[in-house]
Design a protein around this nucleic acid. Sequence first.
DNA 1: TAATTAAGTCAAGACAATTGACTTAATAAG
DNA 2: CTTATTAAGTCAATTGTCTTGACTTAATTA
Lengths: 399, 399
Amino acid sequence: MNDTRPIRAKSGTNHEGTSAHNRRVMIDALRVNGALSRADLARATRLTKQTVSNIIDELESDGLVTSRQTVRNGRGQPSTPYALVPEGAFAIGLQIDRHMTRAIAVDLVGNVLVRLEAKLPSGGPTTGIRVILDLIAAVRRHLTAIASQSEQRLVGLGAAMPGPFGLAGNGDDPWMMEAWQKFPLLETLAVGTGLDVSIQNDAAAATIAERMVGAAHGLDHAVCLYIGYGIGAGLILGGELYTGAYGNAGEIGMALLAVGGKSTPLEHRASLASLYQYLSLDPADPNLYVKIHDLVSTEDRRIVEWVETAAADLRWSVHLIETVFDPQTVILCGSAPRILVDRLLVTMGPLLPSLAERPDRTVPRLQVGMADPWSVALGAAAGPISLEFDPRYAAILKD
Amino acid sequence: MNDTRPIRAKSGTNHEGTSAHNRRVMIDALRVNGALSRADLARATRLTKQTVSNIIDELESDGLVTSRQTVRNGRGQPSTPYALVPEGAFAIGLQIDRHMTRAIAVDLVGNVLVRLEAKLPSGGPTTGIRVILDLIAAVRRHLTAIASQSEQRLVGLGAAMPGPFGLAGNGDDPWMMEAWQKFPLLETLAVGTGLDVSIQNDAAAATIAERMVGAAHGLDHAVCLYIGYGIGAGLILGGELYTGAYGNAGEIGMALLAVGGKSTPLEHRASLASLYQYLSLDPADPNLYVKIHDLVSTEDRRIVEWVETAAADLRWSVHLIETVFDPQTVILCGSAPRILVDRLLVTMGPLLPSLAERPDRTVPRLQVGMADPWSVALGAAAGPISLEFDPRYAAILKD
DNA sequence: TAATTAAGTCAAGACAATTGACTTAATAAG
DNA sequence: CTTATTAAGTCAATTGTCTTGACTTAATTA
């Protein structure tokens, strides 16, 4: 037995894992339900009153929760509800897109405190990274002006950009952002900002935003169909964002539509990029969204055409997502003008039959989430908050 | 605040959760790596030597692990490897199919000790349940004859049958087993056997088998494409079987193949049922598999035709699975004759381009798993073992 | 033969949840 | 108005589980 093949094993846990989990469970409960008393928390989490009391004391002295007015509930001593303190934590979110970059600052409950954007120069990462670092620095300055403790309570920087990551090389597919995908973004941002950095694709980021403050709030099984320059699905499976073995799960835009024959990726038919192409719009045009909004609201013939073909493809995508994931709901979201997403939703109905047609359904099969150019940046910012405060299996384990 | 809306919260954990997790981690490590010393386990699980020592002592006195010959590893005291005791636990697996039922008994490491099958009468559950209960009783008698302690160490009964579950009603689609799907199987089996019963669809069961003793052994992100009478995908995501919000995740056989136009479910084109139909074979024929084997080995024209169309659909399915789940590997398995599955695998090559074409790949994109009529029953039996002994987030939580 | 290295044990300690009795503050009943 | 009841929340002791650091054992190497 002198071989040194690595031993594969899951990590064990100890008291600190237990305690970390229970703290996260409290925070999650307050996020999902709003203010709760210690007794409520004890019942909901199945912990004892005493344990909850200790944890709440601790969270309070850490500045993460605070008590509200006591309330009388009938007989018995009035209860004291506790709520999350928005200023308990902050995070920066960064979206890197083809032609521009956005940065945002959020607090513990998901309020957006600062938002800034900048055009990205065409030179790719070598010139773009300077713009990005400046933008982040500016966001931090603004944030400090609003909340003086923000720097001490900054839990990290979440970055979002189009995937997929780690591939062999895509040739020069203009749909991709190959130069950025190969750039050591994480390391560069970490050094340049001194923050903990995490990176996700844009659909995953939008999904985290939906879970924190949107349509997936409190749901443990939800899929967001994200329509941006590309198309992706963000997966909330078992209460956690699922990103696959290599971080590319949900890259549904790359799915080929037809079996055999000439097959096109979904992304080439139903994304904003395909819309720009169809309407010969310039993706770098700063008035793009206004133009699209106007075209939709005046029922322009060509955009109606595009919506109809895109809706057919998306209808099928929803069917596929339901069939494969069996989620509680599918959420249509995107960094697209709200009016366009609403129009898509309407045009997608009626949905294809699927196993999601349950007799006991309480949530709609398909609903609109945030449709806002800033949702990716918001989700990117929510990422570090979620990593730090949401209950997760990995948070229990050692190391 | 006198409303009584239910409070949604995750469950907390305590010492017992910690300890339960660490025990499971040990067992998992021994299952994946074979025999390991206490020191090895301590390093791999990041627990202290002392903790590992205590847990191993406990597992040993519970009859779940046992020591092997000490081995000299160079300097230092020789180490004592510990291994799982096969007789440490047993489980019964049950497969209910359209025309027959199979029952199996396995031990802790996945050895099959008993296998029995019976024809199911055409009368559906009302008459079939008697046959099934008798079959289970017979398996238990045989098991007791082999392992006298088996009854005390029986952790449960896992049942597997074609999904989907809990739907509104499928009309009388002959592909479905509607009467069985509506029958209160779980309750009836629990009462009839006195065991803990769990139910899964056949693809999920086959996947658990692959994870325990097959191609997914030790992998945390793998998808099994299961080809049986129907078609389904079994999902190992983040080291656990994922079954969706309502237990139907992976029912990929219901996925419609084309966008718009006349679209057929995958299941109607690439399943064994479609093969039987194509070749006008009787699904209830006891010599079915022998016939198919012969047809494949003699390269019968019509089966070659079927394989080619099915392979095209399955090639696309693999592409889709890779795109959506980003797994470490896709495993082709089924309750079909091995030779047919092998033939399908060969015919499916070359695979479609996808993000699974990674430069750093160590596992094949697609591989054959168990292809054996008994794999579903085996996986059904592995279910209760996995539930009882594998590390899982839910095992840590209270209640 | 002595030094070194590694496996494994012992006993005390630390940490976090649990337990059960107690306090507080409200409503309901007589 | 008084007393019983109910529920929130605290106190202090206890329990369960992992950790720590010193120690023992048994091998190889110098």
